[in-house]
Design a protein around this nucleic acid. Structure first.
Lengths: 347, 347
DNA sequence: ATTATTAATGTAAGCGCTTACAGTAATCCA
DNA sequence: TGGATTACTGTAAGCGCTTACATTAATAAT
């Protein structure tokens, strides 16, 4: 170990350069543009690199190069698995170009989201992966002022400037609702995540209403319960729904987590699913097929979204401008929790 | 916007200093040691900061200050929820000191883990949060050479040098096994995650064997199936187990995810749980109580581990040396999937 | 062999911040 | 009121890298 190296300090490019008897520029080139360097000197340098256990200082590199090969992802929550698969795919796609991902979560809070975006940008994110359409105007301003490549996922961007890869939440929800309504359900409840800063949640509710309207039901008759994102909240919301109107025969849920909560609540209350009440979810996370009864839900292309988002971002960096708004298909997955309503004697 | 500022460039400390008509040093102090600055100039500076939308460049700051207030967490997988709660608690505890977390996942691969550690350290992590005890020797060497505060979670460190906060996997598994064996089970299968680079998985198997031994059963008679980490793998492992020995009455699983797969496989095969076969899990993730039948499992203090790990790391940074090895309790959660074996006619 | 090209390497100027040190203004005490 | 403290603020030297440009070595062309 060189004498000028305290044991707690990492070796620097400088150290490598001295050890290999070349300039720092050459070492840098070996690492970043190896084709510009003779095989012989390259070997000398690489030997020194591994001998010293050198690894470039990220901050210094970002500072000098003004890019980081890092992309930031901000998801509303890490708590459940909805975004996990998408992120995994995003990361994997980045890896093919040796780019890396950093994740942050906003806890569904617009202020935190802005903070996190600032943070990731300060950390040098070359681009950003965001969920949904509904963001603080300040965020949009920030991103466009800084000219930061961004792609919105899980939605279709309403801003032509911002790339997106997602699906039509409204249509998907409408399709599922039509499927259910055609079975004969008339009294319908909907358990949704809070719709305030959440376009996806809103669209899913709207889709259900639209389906009702098309089939001649009053969309305003939909009983809506908004709640937080957890199984327990779904549990309670289901109970509130049934307490408010015991003749509901179909409870649609804005996502699978809430639906699982609803299933639990039903069992707890001795309500049979789907004999007494049908329940549907949305997302098709692993949970949906594992639960009893298995959940009828909307399958969402998590992985594809993650992968394509990474591609868009990487292309944008290369200056390629490809299709900026990718709309993917969803499909209804019929499982056990949805059935025709049983004729029930009105009290 | 100052003329020297291209629209795509972030404002710098310099810009703020000019706008506030002070030196860069003063701006820096306002941000980092506000008590050293007069209220009047502080206000001038802060106004300029918000007017310009300034946010410090992370890389430059890390480079100059030689610390980042950032801690890295490396987990084996993001795919399921086992580590999510722990991480969330870790992050939350860091926030109280305005520190932040960056996450990476190793996919249970020691090589990737080393890469990720290098990466996080290059990114300036002031400390590291790792899962388990089983790491590449190179990792230990790297960490001690660099003097990087590290805490191992989900385990009890076998290296007195490295702090840890976890629980005794062997004892926890043994306790659960005793509970089950005392019900009368004799033929036992165990579905485990791969034990190769995974001390937790190994200890859980050993715990079961130990319990068998204590009760006079041959520990070698335990039928072990190792597999990957997923519901589907648990499904297949269960089938293999039952194909190999149809008189098994208890299938212990190294974690809840595998156990849920086992439950599915049983239902699929028409095996009733717990009447025909009992199944146990480990971890007590949300899934465990939601599944039918609800899973008997070992409750693990995810949140506490995350929180305490953050505390240890923060203390270490302040130079406080507190208890370096925290051992937490686990407890068996009895639910529906475990019952006494039914007397079965030996065909 | 000599010159024109091209390829490989070196030199040095920053990137945006923090902080030791120096300098200046404000406050204290006799 | 003058000198000694003390409290702020400024100056400037890096932190560890990348990269435009200059220089030197290798190769091609005449």
């Amino acid at each position: 170990m060189p004498a000028n190296l305290r044991s707690t300090d990492l070796p620097t490019l400088q150290d490598v350069a001295e050890a290999a008897k070349v300039s720092t520029a050459t070492v840098s080139r070996c690492l970043n543009n190896p084709e510009q360097v003779t095989a012989r000197t390259k070997k000398r340098v690489m030997d020194a690199v591994s001998r010293l256990g050198y690894s470039p200082n990220f901050g210094a590199r970002a500072l000098a190069a003004r890019r980081t090969n890092t992309f930031g992802a901000i998801i509303p929550t890490m708590d459940n698995a909805i975004f996990a698969r998408g992120l995994q795919a995003f990361q994997k796609a980045l890896e093919t170009e040796h780019a890396t991902m950093i994740v942050a979560s906003s806890s569904y809070d617009p202020d935190i989201e802005l903070d996190q975006i600032r943070n990731l940008v300060a950390r040098g994110a070359d681009g950003l992966f965001l969920i949904g359409n509904d963001h603080d105007p300040e965020i949009y301003e920030f991103l466009s002022r800084r000219n930061i490549p961004t792609v919105l996922a899980w939605t279709i961007s309403s801003d032509p400037e911002l790339a997106s890869v997602g699906f039509n939440n409204l249509e998907a929800s409408r399709t599922l609702a039509l499927e259910a309504l055609n079975l004969g359900h008339q009294r319908i409840g909907f358990i949704s995540a809070h719709t305030a800063h959440n376009d996806r949640a809103r669209d899913r509710v709207r889709g259900a209403r639209k389906a009702m309207e098309e089939l001649g039901l009053d969309p305003e008759a939909l009983r809506l319960e908004e709640t937080n994102y957890s199984i327990d909240c779904g549990f309670e919301a289901f109970n509130r729904l049934m307490a408010a109107d015991k003749e509901i025969t179909l409870v649609m849920c804005g996502n699978d987590v809430l639906a699982v909560g609803a299933l639990q609540a039903a069992r707890h209350a001795g309500i049979r699913i789907p004999e007494d009440v049908s329940v549907t979810g949305f997302d098709d996370i692993e949970l949906a097929r594992v639960v009893t009864p298995a959940l009828t839900t909307v399958h969402v292309p998590h992985r594809q979204m993650g992968r394509l988002a990474a591609q868009l971002l990487l292309e944008e960096r290369k200056g390629e401008t490809s299709s900026r708004h990718i709309v993917l298909d969803t499909n209804v997955v019929l499982r056990e929790s949805l059935a025709p309503p049983k004729f029930r004697d009105k009290r």
